[in-house]
Design a protein around this nucleic acid. Structure first.
Lengths: 132, 132
DNA sequence: CCCGCTCAACGAATGACTTCGTACAGCATG
DNA sequence: CATGCTGTACGAAGTCATTCGTTGAGCGGG
């Protein structure tokens, strides 16, 4: 038996991430659900989605309920955890390990609403207090 | 002749990014420089670094001065532009297009010094003023 | 019972990335 | 000139991600 801690799950590939996105949004879904949400428009085949999801299941990224004829899939990794993981990766690899460099870039080059700015400021205040 | 605008340069792969890191830091370097900075310790071969840099040159990611026997390489893409590119990618693919979601995650889960927090706050103030 | 539909399983083909072995050129030294 | 050193060039091999064609199972309607 192989036990694998969550942190050792492989990093999702690009196509896998798109599928996880659908599962996170819906909570769960069949291959058909995912195919229609992602591939139906741009001509991707049904079996392509199926194969990807089989691979993801083999990797442990998704779990599968096969009590129904159309198996129902569900993400094993949470969205938050995955976001954090990609974030650390990018901080290490292109921002020399400095998260605040990344924050400065992100704030500078992308748009944020006043609502979001307010939220960020509140978090900033809290961090300031905690690091006193 | 093929002319390629900067925005169409391919996204550097993981190994390419490490090499770009060395070139950004040094300004320029030979294959030997890069190999010693990156691969010497972990056993990577000299020709591996060479091949990677040849591929990068073919892709247009680096330029090469071959007037010397040991060719001197220099990054074509700037560090800032590459950071921005990876950032947009990750915002689109795992943060549903919301840069401030990313900022909140980054601030929450990674450490930032008081200096950096101050810098972020200043930028925040400026953004607030501008969006008034 | 048989046809047609939906589905999972499997394997092949392709292409990208990475690593490395080998070949070959230039140059200095004896 | 022969040898050794340092460099580039080239191609093969391995791995992984992605795409797709084919097969066979199960099920319901005629």
């Amino acid at each position: 038996m192989t036990i694998r801690r969550a942190s050792e799950l492989p990093k999702p590939t690009e196509a896998e991430l798109a599928i996880l996105g659908v599962l996170w949004e819906r909570g769960s879904g069949t291959v058909r659900d995912v195919h229609e949400a992602l591939y139906a428009n741009d001509g991707g085949g049904y079996t392509t989605a199926l194969k990807l999801m089989q691979v993801m299941h083999a990797k442990g990224l998704v779990e599968r309920d096969d009590s129904q004829r159309a198996h129902v899939f569900r993400a094993v990794v949470s969205k938050e955890r995955t976001q954090k993981r990609f974030l650390s990766d990018i901080v290490d690899r292109v921002f020399d390990g400095s998260a605040s460099q990344l924050v400065l870039h992100a704030l500078g080059s992308q748009s944020a609403s006043r609502e979001e700015l307010k939220e960020i400021r509140q978090l900033l205040n809290r961090l300031d207090r905690e690091s006193k």
